[in-house]
Simulated assay, not measured.
Amino acid sequence: MWKQWSARIHKWLGLTLTVWLVLVALTGTLLFYKTELLQLSYPQLNLQQVPTVAQAAAVYDRYAAGYAYLPRADKPWTEVVDGAGTIHYYDAAGELLLARPLLGDWLSWAVEFHHHLLLHELGKELQGIFGLLSLLLVVAGLVRWWPRHWSWRLLSVRWQWPSSRQFMATLWQLHRSVGVIALLPLLALLLTGTAIMYAAAVSSSLDQWLPERQTLNAQPLPQTRALNWQQRLELAASYWPDQTTRLLYLAPTEVGGYRMRLQHDAEWHPNGRSYLEFDAAGQLLSADDVRAKSRGFQLSQMIYPLHIAAVGGVAWLTALILGGLALMLLPITGVWFWWRRRAASRG
């Protein structure tokens, strides 16, 4: 009975989610190489000299809205996203290399589709729902297939050409084998991707389950005033020498403060989760060190780096790429098999 119900669930969810799975897997796999694709599409971004902090800070002072990323060796430019979503790229001399409007090229479309289905907050909610359904789809398929006796022959694929009558068997074997072999990276992508859509709920739950905190010696806030981004970045480097500034919020908050995000040496998140905030007069208002947060919160901040292969090196990146390819191949072979069998029964 379980196999019958799982077969029905797997079939109808597969038919419903096929287009979404293929497109989300395709865009996500491409985004593993976002920087390389950017440099391929825009040769002016192939820079040899990484801007210094001072050179980048001079660019940040030109903006009063949006956010900006600090230059890095793998992204050798100063990157600013203005209030309209246009991404600006500057070289070490502060010269504008490129301005990419939101949805101004195919890569921007891929990013927005993968994150929000081009539907902003509604798309984020739909992504979460589709992610949960896709996990149910995988579990139902696994229950449907689960054999009574294990053998390596269960994963064999006998190839036949589409013109052959036996091609339906090839489709079924390929669908089954890819799903089993790529199960772990496939689940890793779906679980982390869905958890990102429900980040607040996941973080709150883990915070309650693992509330233990590390006690840190709080440093007194310096009285030095930082009136521009160069001074703020210098103050951050002296206040937290073991943390690196990664992301700046160029627009003041409702209380008039400017915020920056920092990453400590052992942190997985590429943009960091520690915060410094300055008031409009340049006074350091608060210092929020992620290492003082609960173990649950810190664990929740490892989900995003795992999803984008920011950790784990080449091995983890390769596994996730295989998982992405499997997420494209599985719905295609499944729908193809369903269509061939339906056509055969009608014939």
Rank of each mutant, 00 (worst) to 15 (best):
L13S: 06
P162E: 06
L276S: 07
A236V: 04
D91E: 09
S177N: 11
S274F: 03
L96N: 12
T333G: 03
V80Y: 11
H264C: 05
A315V: 02
L126F: 05
A315S: 05
A226C: 07
V157L: 05
Y33M: 10
M302Q: 02
R341E: 08
T86S: 15
S177H: 14
E254L: 12
W106I: 11
L227K: 09
E277Q: 13
E125G: 14
T244C: 08
P51N: 10
V19K: 13
T318Q: 03
T27S: 09
M302V: 01
F130I: 01
D74N: 09
L154T: 01
A226K: 04
L97T: 12
M197L: 13
Q39K: 05
W172V: 09
V139L: 01
A140I: 00
P51T: 05
W77N: 05
D288L: 06
V143P: 01
M328G: 04
I9T: 08
V143C: 00
V311D: 04
S238R: 09
D207S: 00
A315D: 06
L126Q: 05
T86P: 15
L15F: 14
D74R: 06
L320G: 01
Y275L: 13
E112S: 10
L327M: 04
R144T: 08
L329T: 04
T86N: 15
L233F: 05
L186P: 12
L96D: 11
H114C: 07
A25G: 12
H88T: 11
H269W: 01
A319K: 01
L132G: 03
R213M: 02
K124I: 08
L96V: 11
F337K: 03
T253G: 15
V314P: 06
A195Y: 04
V311I: 02
L38D: 14
Q263D: 06
S177Q: 14
Q243P: 03
W229R: 04
Q55T: 04
P211V: 02
L136W: 02
D207E: 02
K34R: 14
L21I: 12
Q127K: 13
